[in-house]
Design a protein around this nucleic acid. Sequence first.
DNA 1: GTCTATAATAGGATAGAC
DNA 2: GTCTATCCTATTATAGAC
Lengths: 179, 179
Amino acid sequence: MVTALRDVFRAKGWDGASLSDLSRATGLSRAALYHHFPNGKADMAAAALDDVERRLGAELFAPLAGEGAPEARFARWLDGIAAYYRNGDLGCLLGALSLGQDEHKLRPRVEDGFTRWIEALARLADERGAAPADARASAVAVVALIQGALTLARATSSSAPFETALRAAPHILFGNRSA
Amino acid sequence: MVTALRDVFRAKGWDGASLSDLSRATGLSRAALYHHFPNGKADMAAAALDDVERRLGAELFAPLAGEGAPEARFARWLDGIAAYYRNGDLGCLLGALSLGQDEHKLRPRVEDGFTRWIEALARLADERGAAPADARASAVAVVALIQGALTLARATSSSAPFETALRAAPHILFGNRSA
DNA sequence: GTCTATAATAGGATAGAC
DNA sequence: GTCTATCCTATTATAGAC
């Protein structure tokens, strides 16, 4: 059920995801949703964030910090990313929730999610011997690249930008970029 | 007036931008807005797209195709981009409108806008001698990078990701990346 | 051209039956 | 736990005065 909610937020964002949408996706009435999530949409989005964090943490970010060459781990991670986003057909929950509701409670969680992505990738670049500042800059660039590629994929109804971005990612994370 | 509308869409996206928001930003009543834009929000967003296309076309993309070394033109373009997005404080209209309203009339225009960005940058990489496919891939990566950096900047309330992305952009567009 | 007033609808949320 | 029914508010849109 949470995955159904999650997918609505991924596809429509905070403002676009109405209770009717969420009700339809889950097969539950609006009132029934309030039984599971007393605070309404905010609780549903929080549950979706929980689900994504738990799932991606276990399947993608744990192996990323495992053993083997950094390049090989990153390549596996990219494969996982491609699968999770279905080659660009699905959006990113963090990105979708970053627009809208100005003052809401989810903001820190979204920010935190992005920070974790960046730190995990920065560690990888760091292992390869990059200077800390360069490692972080490369990691930021890779996360931005993937986020933007999902935006382009959605806007153009094509998976091509996403695939292009994933191919470029290793060069950006590990490539020799001075300053 | 159109720039006020534009900025609301940039900040809140299609779903988040209500007529009340647009009315407040312009200082006009909702009814007065309908006088200028008979079809409501859709017309306002279209006018915002017109404004952005005209403005960026003249100030950024025309000089990009001008004379001088590609690297220098690209550097000036990046300066213009930084100014237009106020170092990441403002969002991208295309990106903001890419989420929401499933079937609406603006979709082709958003797609077209992104396509023009990509083609302009691809020409630049092409001038530098990149193979056509590589030039296009690099251009896609740069547009995605900038888009994603704006998402990160908004999510983290920091201009740092945006500035990092702009520094990385020349290496991605012109750097030696083999396939 | 802009306003006030108003309609019609959708969204968010709650009450209470089962 | 899930439903129907309901409420309140916000949103989109229109009518008509000035």
